[in-house]
Amino acid sequence: MSAVPVSPPEKTSGVMAKIIGVPSAGPLLVLLAFGLIFAITNPRFLATHNLSIILQQTVIIGTLAIGQTLVILTAGIDLAVGAICVLGTIIAGKLVTSGYDPALSMAFSVLVCTAAGFAAGGLISGLRLPPFIVTLGILGILTAALRLISAGGAFPVRDEFLGWTGNTLRLGGFIVTYGVLLMFVLYALVWYLLNETKWGRHVYAIGNSPEAARLVGIPVRRHLLSVYLLAGFIYGIGAWLALGRIPNADPNALQTANLDSITAVVIGGTSLFGGRGGLIGTLIGALIVGVLRNGLTLAGIDPLWQDLVTGILVIVAVALDQLSRRKG
């Protein structure tokens, strides 16, 4: 006897209802509203050149926020994102400056970042330590290690391959960098993983209730490990993108990347309690932050307004999440 007998197909239910029910509709509205305000106040805002600048500015945090989203969906948090990414830039930079093949150097540094994610995941799933503490510890260790490796100072990384992600190409009047394209590819791939595969389902299940996940037979610890591993890999790609933006390996860089990426994730509607939200929201969240900063500058307004508005959005997003969870 088969467990799942086949049955006749059903008709698809209301497409419109689905669109309205999409969780990232709220952040999208906010993004469009800001876009509208800025477009009215300064026509330069909508110049294709300016829009492509905003995309380029979103590349690093936007990419790191992919990993952060995965981690937060499992009810974790990653404070070491920036440090792991900087580690990638410094290792790749050091290797290339010492004469190694650029592609191999970059691949190796992505591998090291993946290993850093693996280490975090191992401590979190293996020893059952809280993600906050583990990644805080890794942040501290890496900060010290980075200063040691780079002897305290930043150094320029002038290499064609490492800087490739900063090269531009024309897409119908729109200038984008390869880095921007790479970011979108990552978003598409991870979106697919999260929404269309078992792996992604189980990420949500673990974030919802690790005990329930265990009881239905999901190997929770192994799965958590794979999440941090993938996040580490994405941070490694982030390092490549960072070198494309700024051809410079600086141990002091990206110090606020952890909070910035968490901001993007939260504004995008993903719950800090895990199990709710998604990647499209994160991309929109990262864009909101970028649009705010760019738009305010174009309008000649003090950037402290950006922090203020971002702060309001974060609190509202978390409050909305709390409300919807309490209702449930």
Binding site: K198, Y204, S209, E211, L215, I218, G275, R276, G328
Partner: peptide, 24 residues
């Protein structure tokens, strides 16, 4: 059926029914 049910609250009914045994 465990006493604490073992369901993922934010996932929909179909996802919960197939949790851990998703169909490809």
């Amino acid at each position: 059926v465990y006493q604490d049910l073992a369901v993922a609250p934010a996932l929909d009914i179909a996802s919960n029914l197939f949790l851990g045994r998703e169909l490809r």
